[in-house]
Nucleic acid binder design. Structure first.
Lengths: 240, 240
DNA sequence: CGGTCTTTCTTGGGATACCGAAATGGGATA
DNA sequence: TATCCCATTTCGGTATCCCAAGAAAGACCG
């Protein structure tokens, strides 16, 4: 905070949670990064964050260290920057997701309760054609995490959640057409349908195809719009 | 540091790397945790760490936040504790590793160069029967990470490295017999052999079997020695 | 006018001051 | 003696302060 005209040491009025300020700042900053509110590659100074979040450097640095662990923020020399988007990761990410998600749906077939499955169905239902883009984006991410959750394996859940986070910003850059949205929606439905029907092989095949399709759609869209991306000034690297 | 008889503000003599103290503390603390130098569940006070590492709370807190991200340290209310060992994770961990490592060895068959494979072979060779226990422990972990590296997929590498870290402490608790050591060694050899021979199916089968075997060996040993574990006072939970 | 040296400013890394809450530890009391 | 209460300490959370290094901005010289 400012060093002049400063009100004498004012200590926070004791929130109920530990490190509450740090957690708040972490969440907000995370959201700003994932929503592209802060551009990939953008420099973050602790002092700017201080004024932006009206907290002192201590909780801000803690939040930055934490975000560094999530690879949403990175060091550039001794500076902090928002992690750039590396579109070269997209293939590796799909390659990583396929074995995990096929395993997840297989396990889900064996373990998921009717109620759990119904919960995911509801989530899909809640996002109809007219829904705003944010909604589609969120559900498109959460679906995969929720499916992973049906597997009952926390390591799979965490890995998938991490992968979807890494994918999130690239997905914002995609130019979404109505047909592609529709296709994704149908594929999600189909995967869930096979889980409900306890058909692990079909579910796994469908999941793998979906990941591949999505990757291709994304890469195609980004390649076509490459000029647009640069124009928007994003530090986007790695697209071959 | 102490509040009495304190030498006036002494500022660190400028290391070359940014946040060097934090990184040093992080590494040392990490090592102490993984080697069971600090018992699972043990309370860590920032002030104790201060004197232990002769640094101030700032870098120590950064190291703790970072370790929290690796789940080696955790909050308990507003205290810090060394993450307990949860032996209930062992099954889920194996379930997680199998699809990833089978994928890794398949990819390795397609992508690994002779030189890379030779590097891993050397690592195995360097650890002969007479080697100290630490050596076996390290190689037993690193082998899997190095195999993952042969896949060329950084996400797989990171996931496997994380899984092996999570497994590391449980492996220290295992009572290692000469035959089991031998078996693990043979299995590692075999996996690498199939990769060298570009036989993905056999490599994948072998890798999956190895993970299963290792899990069973570990669970059996821990079950038999459960009394011993408690006697040693470890905060070990989750063994059914 | 361009290049270079110097001064200044800014930033991150680290140390410490201070607060409130929780833990601790005696004694006093029933 | 068991229990409760309050003084004291300890601890984590936060704010601020100090330092060194490097970047930016001038100042100076050829």
């Amino acid at each position: 905070m400012g060093y002049l005209f400063k009100v004498p040491p004012f200590h926070a009025p004791a929130r109920d949670l530990p490190m509450s300020q740090m957690l708040q700042i972490h969440d907000q900053l995370r959201e700003m990064i994932l929503s592209l509110d802060l551009g990939p590659g953008e420099r973050l100074t602790e002092r700017w964050l201080e004024s932006r979040f009206e907290g002192s450097r201590t909780p801000i640095r803690a939040a930055l260290v934490r975000l560094e662990g999530e690879e949403l923020v990175r060091r550039d020399g001794r500076n902090w920057i928002v992690a750039p988007i590396d579109l070269g990761e997209l293939e590796a990410l799909a390659e990583f997701r396929i074995p995990l998600e096929t395993t997840a749906v297989r396990l889900a077939c064996a373990r998921a309760s009717e109620a759990d499955i119904a919960g995911v169905e509801e989530m899909l239902d809640a996002c109809q054609s007219g829904a705003p883009r944010e909604e589609w984006h969120r559900v498109g991410t959460d679906f995969h995490v929720e499916i992973a959750r049906l597997s009952g394996n926390p390591f799979i859940v965490k890995a998938i959640a991490g992968a979807m986070t890494r994918l999130s910003r690239a997905r914002w850059l995609e130019v979404w057409t109505e047909p592609s949205r529709e296709q994704a929606w149908r594929e999600h439905r189909r995967i869930l349908g096979f889980i409900k029907a306890k058909d692990p092989d079909s579910a796994a095949r469908e999941a793998a195809d979906h990941i591949t399709d999505t990757r291709d759609r994304l890469l195609r869209s980004l390649n076509e719009d490459r000029r647009g991306l640069r124009a928007r000034g994003f530090a986007v690297i790695g697209l071959r």
